[in-house]
Design a protein around this nucleic acid. Sequence first.
DNA 1: CTATATTTGGACATTTTCTGTCAAGAACAA
DNA 2: TTGTTCTTGACAGAAAATGTCCAAATATAG
Lengths: 97, 97
Amino acid sequence: MQKIESFGEMLRKLREENEMPLRKLAAQLDLDQSTLRKIERKERNANSDQKEKNAKIFKVSKKDLQVNFLSDKVAYELLEEEFGVESLQVAEEKVKY
Amino acid sequence: MQKIESFGEMLRKLREENEMPLRKLAAQLDLDQSTLRKIERKERNANSDQKEKNAKIFKVSKKDLQVNFLSDKVAYELLEEEFGVESLQVAEEKVKY
DNA sequence: CTATATTTGGACATTTTCTGTCAAGAACAA
DNA sequence: TTGTTCTTGACAGAAAATGTCCAAATATAG
Protein backbone atom coordinates (compact mmCIF):
# COMPACT_ATOMS: atom_id res chain seq x y z
CA MET A 1 0.00 0.00 0.00
CA GLN A 2 1.34 3.32 -1.00
CA LYS A 3 1.81 6.00 1.56
CA ILE A 4 -0.05 9.18 0.87
CA GLU A 5 2.17 12.05 1.67
CA SER A 6 1.05 15.02 3.65
CA PHE A 7 1.65 18.42 2.18
CA GLY A 8 4.37 19.24 4.67
CA GLU A 9 6.14 15.95 4.04
CA MET A 10 6.04 16.65 0.35
CA LEU A 11 7.58 20.07 0.79
CA ARG A 12 10.29 18.82 3.05
CA LYS A 13 11.10 15.93 0.80
CA LEU A 14 11.39 18.23 -2.19
CA ARG A 15 13.61 20.51 -0.26
CA GLU A 16 15.84 17.78 1.06
CA GLU A 17 16.11 16.04 -2.26
CA ASN A 18 17.40 19.28 -3.62
CA GLU A 19 19.61 19.74 -0.62
CA MET A 20 18.34 23.18 -0.05
CA PRO A 21 18.50 24.53 3.48
CA LEU A 22 15.46 26.06 5.11
CA ARG A 23 17.24 29.35 5.09
CA LYS A 24 17.67 29.47 1.34
CA LEU A 25 14.27 28.22 0.45
CA ALA A 26 12.70 30.58 2.91
CA ALA A 27 14.56 33.42 1.25
CA GLN A 28 13.33 32.37 -2.16
CA LEU A 29 9.82 32.08 -0.88
CA ASP A 30 10.18 35.39 0.86
CA LEU A 31 9.32 34.20 4.32
CA ASP A 32 10.96 33.56 7.64
CA GLN A 33 12.69 30.22 7.99
CA SER A 34 10.80 29.48 11.15
CA THR A 35 7.58 30.01 9.29
CA LEU A 36 8.69 27.69 6.53
CA ARG A 37 9.53 25.06 9.04
CA LYS A 38 6.13 25.42 10.57
CA ILE A 39 4.57 24.98 7.18
CA GLU A 40 6.49 21.77 6.74
CA ARG A 41 5.19 20.69 10.10
CA LYS A 42 1.65 21.78 9.44
CA GLU A 43 1.77 24.32 12.19
CA ARG A 44 0.99 27.03 9.69
CA ASN A 45 -0.62 27.19 6.26
CA ALA A 46 1.12 28.04 3.04
CA ASN A 47 -0.55 30.70 0.99
CA SER A 48 -1.11 30.59 -2.71
CA ASP A 49 1.99 32.56 -3.57
CA GLN A 50 4.23 30.33 -1.58
CA LYS A 51 2.82 27.22 -3.16
CA GLU A 52 3.28 28.66 -6.60
CA LYS A 53 6.87 29.61 -5.94
CA ASN A 54 7.56 26.23 -4.46
CA ALA A 55 6.21 24.58 -7.53
CA LYS A 56 8.43 26.65 -9.76
CA ILE A 57 11.54 26.17 -7.70
CA PHE A 58 11.24 22.43 -7.60
CA LYS A 59 9.62 22.06 -10.97
CA VAL A 60 6.58 20.20 -9.80
CA SER A 61 3.05 20.96 -10.87
CA LYS A 62 1.22 23.58 -8.94
CA LYS A 63 -1.83 21.41 -9.10
CA ASP A 64 -0.11 18.57 -7.28
CA LEU A 65 0.95 20.87 -4.52
CA GLN A 66 -2.42 22.51 -4.28
CA VAL A 67 -4.33 19.26 -4.22
CA ASN A 68 -2.03 17.85 -1.62
CA PHE A 69 -2.36 20.96 0.48
CA LEU A 70 -6.12 21.21 0.30
CA SER A 71 -6.77 17.55 0.85
CA ASP A 72 -4.54 17.72 3.88
CA LYS A 73 -6.35 20.70 5.24
CA VAL A 74 -9.75 19.15 4.77
CA ALA A 75 -8.66 15.81 6.13
CA TYR A 76 -7.29 17.34 9.28
CA GLU A 77 -10.31 19.52 9.78
CA LEU A 78 -12.66 16.61 9.48
CA LEU A 79 -10.68 14.23 11.60
CA GLU A 80 -11.16 16.54 14.53
CA GLU A 81 -14.90 16.65 14.11
CA GLU A 82 -17.61 14.28 14.99
CA PHE A 83 -18.93 12.52 11.88
CA GLY A 84 -16.21 14.17 9.86
CA VAL A 85 -15.55 11.15 7.71
CA GLU A 86 -19.20 10.65 6.90
CA SER A 87 -19.44 14.28 5.92
CA LEU A 88 -16.87 13.94 3.19
CA GLN A 89 -19.14 11.83 1.06
CA VAL A 90 -21.94 14.31 1.34
CA ALA A 91 -19.55 17.13 0.54
CA GLU A 92 -18.73 15.39 -2.72
CA GLU A 93 -22.36 15.41 -3.66
CA LYS A 94 -22.62 19.05 -2.82
CA VAL A 95 -19.69 20.24 -4.85
CA LYS A 96 -21.28 18.78 -7.93
CA TYR A 97 -23.65 21.71 -8.14
CA MET B 1 -32.76 14.26 -8.89
CA GLN B 2 -33.06 15.07 -5.27
CA LYS B 3 -31.99 18.43 -3.99
CA ILE B 4 -29.31 18.35 -1.36
CA GLU B 5 -30.13 20.84 1.29
CA SER B 6 -27.61 23.22 2.70
CA PHE B 7 -27.27 23.35 6.45
CA GLY B 8 -28.91 26.74 6.67
CA GLU B 9 -31.82 25.66 4.53
CA MET B 10 -32.29 22.67 6.75
CA LEU B 11 -32.38 24.80 9.87
CA ARG B 12 -34.77 27.26 8.39
CA LYS B 13 -37.05 24.57 7.08
CA LEU B 14 -37.16 22.90 10.47
CA ARG B 15 -37.92 26.17 12.10
CA GLU B 16 -40.63 27.12 9.67
CA GLU B 17 -42.24 23.73 9.71
CA ASN B 18 -42.56 24.15 13.43
CA GLU B 19 -43.76 27.69 12.99
CA MET B 20 -41.24 28.97 15.39
CA PRO B 21 -40.11 32.55 15.04
CA LEU B 22 -36.45 33.42 14.98
CA ARG B 23 -36.95 35.20 18.24
CA LYS B 24 -38.11 32.11 20.09
CA LEU B 25 -35.65 29.73 18.59
CA ALA B 26 -32.84 32.15 19.19
CA ALA B 27 -33.88 32.34 22.81
CA GLN B 28 -33.88 28.59 23.15
CA LEU B 29 -30.50 28.37 21.51
CA ASP B 30 -29.28 31.16 23.68
CA LEU B 31 -28.14 33.44 20.91
CA ASP B 32 -29.13 36.66 19.26
CA GLN B 33 -31.82 36.42 16.63
CA SER B 34 -29.72 38.23 14.10
CA THR B 35 -26.98 35.70 14.65
CA LEU B 36 -29.41 32.87 14.16
CA ARG B 37 -30.56 34.40 10.96
CA LYS B 38 -26.99 34.66 9.79
CA ILE B 39 -26.47 31.02 10.56
CA GLU B 40 -29.44 30.19 8.42
CA ARG B 41 -27.85 32.25 5.68
CA LYS B 42 -24.41 30.78 6.16
CA GLU B 43 -22.99 34.11 7.16
CA ARG B 44 -21.94 32.61 10.44
CA ASN B 45 -21.21 29.15 11.74
CA ALA B 46 -23.21 27.28 14.29
CA ASN B 47 -21.21 25.85 17.11
CA SER B 48 -21.57 22.41 18.54
CA ASP B 49 -23.85 23.47 21.35
CA GLN B 50 -26.23 25.18 19.03
CA LYS B 51 -26.41 22.20 16.73
CA GLU B 52 -27.07 19.91 19.62
CA LYS B 53 -29.85 22.08 20.97
CA ASN B 54 -31.34 22.41 17.54
CA ALA B 55 -31.39 18.68 17.15
CA LYS B 56 -33.18 18.27 20.46
CA ILE B 57 -35.71 20.98 19.84
CA PHE B 58 -36.76 19.64 16.48
CA LYS B 59 -36.16 16.03 17.29
CA VAL B 60 -33.81 15.30 14.46
CA SER B 61 -30.58 13.41 14.78
CA LYS B 62 -27.55 15.36 15.76
CA LYS B 63 -25.61 13.38 13.24
CA ASP B 64 -27.78 14.56 10.37
CA LEU B 65 -27.27 18.15 11.39
CA GLN B 66 -23.58 17.74 11.92
CA VAL B 67 -23.00 15.96 8.65
CA ASN B 68 -24.99 18.55 6.79
CA PHE B 69 -23.11 21.32 8.49
CA LEU B 70 -19.65 19.92 7.90
CA SER B 71 -20.25 18.90 4.34
CA ASP B 72 -21.50 22.37 3.64
CA LYS B 73 -18.50 23.94 5.22
CA VAL B 74 -16.08 21.78 3.30
CA ALA B 75 -17.95 22.17 0.04
CA TYR B 76 -17.92 25.93 0.29
CA GLU B 77 -14.29 26.02 1.26
CA LEU B 78 -13.27 23.93 -1.67
CA LEU B 79 -15.43 25.62 -4.23
CA GLU B 80 -13.52 28.80 -3.62
CA GLU B 81 -10.19 27.13 -4.22
CA GLU B 82 -8.37 26.08 -7.28
CA PHE B 83 -8.51 22.30 -7.72
CA GLY B 84 -10.86 22.10 -4.78
CA VAL B 85 -13.02 19.42 -6.30
CA GLU B 86 -10.06 17.23 -7.18
CA SER B 87 -8.79 17.59 -3.66
CA LEU B 88 -11.87 16.02 -2.15
CA GLN B 89 -11.05 12.62 -3.54
CA VAL B 90 -7.56 12.75 -2.14
CA ALA B 91 -8.91 13.89 1.18
CA GLU B 92 -11.02 10.75 1.31
CA GLU B 93 -7.93 8.65 0.93
CA LYS B 94 -6.19 10.57 3.64
CA VAL B 95 -8.88 10.27 6.26
CA LYS B 96 -8.66 6.53 6.01
CA TYR B 97 -5.54 6.56 8.11
C1' DC C 1 -55.56 51.39 8.30
C1' DT C 2 -53.23 50.71 12.77
C1' DA C 3 -50.82 48.13 15.79
C1' DT C 4 -47.91 44.36 16.69
C1' DA C 5 -44.60 40.90 15.56
C1' DT C 6 -41.04 39.26 12.70
C1' DT C 7 -37.33 39.57 9.61
C1' DT C 8 -33.44 41.65 7.81
C1' DG C 9 -29.15 44.07 7.59
C1' DG C 10 -25.67 46.72 9.41
C1' DA C 11 -22.60 48.62 13.08
C1' DC C 12 -19.70 47.89 16.84
C1' DA C 13 -16.56 46.12 20.50
C1' DT C 14 -14.54 42.04 22.04
C1' DT C 15 -12.37 37.72 21.50
C1' DT C 16 -9.96 34.44 18.96
C1' DT C 17 -7.06 32.99 15.33
C1' DC C 18 -3.58 33.87 11.87
C1' DT C 19 0.74 35.94 10.31
C1' DG C 20 5.24 37.86 10.14
C1' DT C 21 9.23 38.60 12.77
C1' DC C 22 12.75 37.97 16.03
C1' DA C 23 15.85 35.65 19.27
C1' DA C 24 18.08 31.85 21.44
C1' DG C 25 19.27 27.01 22.18
C1' DA C 26 20.54 22.31 20.11
C1' DA C 27 22.85 19.52 16.81
C1' DC C 28 26.41 18.93 13.69
C1' DA C 29 30.48 19.63 10.77
C1' DA C 30 34.71 21.92 9.71
C1' DT D 1 36.01 27.02 18.58
C1' DT D 2 33.48 28.85 14.67
C1' DG D 3 29.90 28.58 11.39
C1' DT D 4 25.71 26.54 9.70
C1' DT D 5 21.26 24.69 9.98
C1' DC D 6 17.31 23.31 12.50
C1' DT D 7 14.06 23.92 16.11
C1' DT D 8 11.16 26.36 19.39
C1' DG D 9 8.93 29.82 21.81
C1' DA D 10 7.56 34.57 22.24
C1' DC D 11 5.51 38.67 20.62
C1' DA D 12 2.83 42.30 18.24
C1' DG D 13 -0.18 43.52 14.62
C1' DA D 14 -3.61 42.00 11.11
C1' DA D 15 -7.47 39.54 10.03
C1' DA D 16 -11.42 36.75 11.02
C1' DA D 17 -15.00 35.15 14.12
C1' DT D 18 -18.33 36.17 17.68
C1' DG D 19 -21.79 38.37 20.71
C1' DT D 20 -24.66 42.24 21.10
C1' DC D 21 -27.56 45.94 19.94
C1' DC D 22 -30.49 48.68 17.00
C1' DA D 23 -33.49 50.40 13.47
C1' DA D 24 -35.58 49.98 8.96
C1' DA D 25 -38.32 46.94 6.18
C1' DT D 26 -41.71 43.53 5.85
C1' DA D 27 -45.40 40.66 7.20
C1' DT D 28 -49.40 39.57 10.10
C1' DA D 29 -53.34 40.37 13.01
C1' DG D 30 -57.12 42.98 14.61
